[in-house]
Design a protein around this nucleic acid. Structure first.
Length: 611
RNA sequence: GCCGGGGUAGCUCAGAGGCAGAGCAACUGAUUCGUAAUCAGUAGGUCGCGGGUUCAACUCCCGCCCCCGGCUCCA
């Protein structure tokens, strides 16, 4: 997987693993033998029981516990409607009340196959036929029996706090060539409080949806003439620009050199890199005078031209080329989602070319950046080291050195990390960085990939070493925001649109109490403008309360109310968007406090708090 | 791409084979207001796009586009 910096949220991982376990029945159990997964697993059985009772024509597939809940897949001619779900849930509550014990039985495999054939449950038969074991276990509660390795709660009575959430199509065994089944998702918790908290979180996530906030705050727009590509509105463009400025300041200070490579690239380059063979279906192609060009889907091959332009000495290394690289990937239409899954995006990309002995120090430098940057946004990063996969290129010794460099870099930086053996790219090991947002959702944004072979070998990159001999440099691909689009989507949800002042499209809004105070309001407004503070003057003919509400809804960090008293004293009454009234403060102090808060990129509102 | 649900005013949404609707926003006027919505009036539409059925289509049928929830994909 080359240069693939943008990938989906981690929430799906667990579902996949659960599904795998069910299908392969490779472990000893069907869910983690802890109270919550067990409870959810049992709840899915009860759901299947209820569905079978209400809709006997339905055939059952599988039903694992997943993060935050469970699902069960059914074959049914028509999808489940919300009314169906309500009936199923009501029946489940009856089954819970009935206090049916979960009973485990051991059956011979052949016996199980015969039973499920009799029951006309083809999916169960298919699972059983794929098993290479003499005996299997089944679980029974009341009139429902399912192939399952458990564990389960003692009785349906153990299920208390649950709710069915949605239904949708899902392929049998997750393969799109297989028939589409109907999946019902639900959630289950140990206590009603936990369930309520979870449901609140879902509601909160809806309110924070960046697509909704993007519209409400005039950040960006989408149009059907450009699916998967945002139109940045003035407010949203401020976010882009502030992030770019932030990145450039840090990169300049760390010896990165910014470059920019063409968007439109002849297919020849991708043939050379190998992408044409494996990736061309994702590339947008453009015919120019009978030649095929592509919109670049990644920046790495183009960036090698910058390296190759000159004969490099060991003394030149490391070379750190950063690029705000605009990429296009032809993602399947059904996968596009707001800013977090797009066809056009801008990576905060960089390719570092270094000597093998410099690798560790470079990784340390990148990890420092990651830590520093995410701290600014109050995002908690976690690190995952992925090591050599089975199918790989490059010598063992190179891999040893690279994996060692990554692990040591993590240790030197004092970072805890998880190991993900075998999950590296075929051309080198990598560190993926996940962030958890304020709602506890996990996203993979940053990635640091060591490239031992891809760019260096394919493009025959060289430097002249101390001994006068040409050597291959090591390349590092890295992105920290991942892409500006996705990062802004995540930030929007993380902050619920209430961006720190340095990012806020409008940092302060001046509100004259009435027309009589407009003249002074203009003075205050001009002063803020002069100090390069993004200010607005709300001189509309509306009551103060109306304009306060409006500013509040727009999440403007500071409202500066000016009336008779303020005009006389050269002050403004500061109201924070948190609702706090900071009282009347001299305008000059507001300006200097604001400048300090913006300059330090503080995540908290500090104006009026200084001594 | 697949399954399902949608697309009606800038936004949120109602309507439904026979004159296109509401609230908010916008605009105009009145009001001159002290910390989350002042009052009145005016204007606003290719009912996603294209075809078909019909005396008549926003409404029914067919095709397409886009969005939403999932699935799949994310060498």
């Amino acid at each position: 997987m080359w240069c693939f910096f943008v990938s989906g949220p981690r929430k799906d991982l667990m579902a996949e693993q659960e599904e795998d376990r069910h299908l392969k029945l490779a472990g000893d159990l069907d869910c983690i033998p802890e109270p919550l997964p067990t409870l959810r697993h049992s709840t899915s059985h009860v759901m299947a029981q209820a569905v079978k009772q209400l809709f006997p024509e339905v055939r059952v597939a599988i039903g694992p516990a997943i993060e935050d809940g469970f699902y069960y897949d059914f074959r049914r001619a028509t999808p489940f409607t919300p009314e169906d779900l309500a009936r199923v849930e009501a029946r489940m509550r009856e089954l819970v009340k009935a206090d049916l014990p979960f009973v485990r039985e051991e059956w011979a495999r052949a016996e199980a196959i015969r039973h499920f054939k009799e029951q006309d449950e083809p999916f169960k038969v298919e699972i059983l036929e794929g098993l290479d074991v003499p005996a299997v276990s089944v679980y029974r509660q009341g009139d429902f029996l399912d192939l399952c390795r458990g564990p389960h709660v003692r009785s349906t009575r153990g299920i208390k706090a649950f709710k069915l959430l949605s239904s949708s199509g899902a392929y049998w065994r997750g393969d799109e060539r297989n028939p589409m089944l109907q999946r019902i998702y639900g959630t289950a918790w140990l206590t009603q409080e936990d369930l309520d908290t979870y449901l609140w979180r879902l509601e909160e996530a809806k309110k924070r949806d960046h697509r909704k906030l993007g519209r409400e705050l005039d950040l960006f727009d989408f149009h059907d003439v450009a699916p998967g590509a945002p139109f940045w509105l003035p407010n949203g463009m401020i976010l882009v620009r502030e992030l770019e400025k932030f990145a450039r300041e840090h990169l300049d200070a760390r010896g990165y050199q910014e470059i920019s490579t063409p968007l439109l690239i002849h297919k020849r380059l991708w043939e050379e890199s190998g992408h044409w063979e494996h990736y061309s279906e994702h590339m947008f192609k453009v015919e120019v005078e009978e030649e095929i060009f592509t919109l670049k889907p990644m920046n790495c091959p183009p960036s090698t031209f910058v390296y190759r332009r000159a004969l490099r000495s060991y003394r030149d290394l490391p070379l750190r080329f950063s690029e705000m690289g605009r990429c296009h990937r032809n993602e399947r239409s059904g996968t596009l989602t707001g800013l977090v899954r797009v066809r056009q995006f801008t990576q905060d990309d960089a390719h570092i070319y270094c000597r093998p002995d410099q690798l560790q120090a470079e990784i340390v430098g990148i990890l420092d950046l990651v830590r520093e940057w995410y701290k600014t946004f109050n995002l908690q990063p976690t690190f995952k080291l992925s090591t050599r996969p089975e199918k790989k290129l490059g010598a063992e010794a190179q891999w040893d050195a690279a994996e060692h460099a990554l692990a040591e870099a993590l240790k030197v930086t004092g970072l805890a990390y998880d190991l993900n053996p075998g999950d590296g790219a075929f051309y080198g090991p990598k560190i993926d960085i996940y962030v958890e947002d304020v709602l506890g959702r996990s996203w993979q944004i940053a990635t640091v990939q060591v490239d031992l072979v891809m760019l260096p070998e394919r493009f025959k990159l060289e430097y002249i070493d101390r001994d006068g001999q040409p050597k291959r440099p090591v390349a590092i691909h890295r992105a920290i925001f991942g892409s500006y689009e996705r990062f802004i989507g995540i930030l929007t949800e993380h902050f619920a649109g209430a961006f720190p002042t340095w990012l806020a499209p409008v940092q302060a809004r001046v509100l004259p109490v009435s027309e009589k105070h407009l003249e002074y309001a203009r003075v205050v407004f001009a002063r803020l403008r002069e100090a390069r503070i993004r200010a607005e003057l709300d001189d509309r003919n509306e009551k103060l309360g109306y304009r306060i509400r409006e500013a509040q809804v727009r999440k403007v960090p500071y409202m500066l109310v000016v009336g008779e008293r303020e005009a006389q004293n050269g002050t403004a009454s500061v109201r924070r968007r948190t609702g706090e009234d900071a009282g009347a403060i001299p305008v000059e102090r507001i300006v200097s406090d604001l400048a300090a808060e913006i300059g330090s990129r503080s995540a908290t509102l500090t104006v009026g708090r200084s001594a």
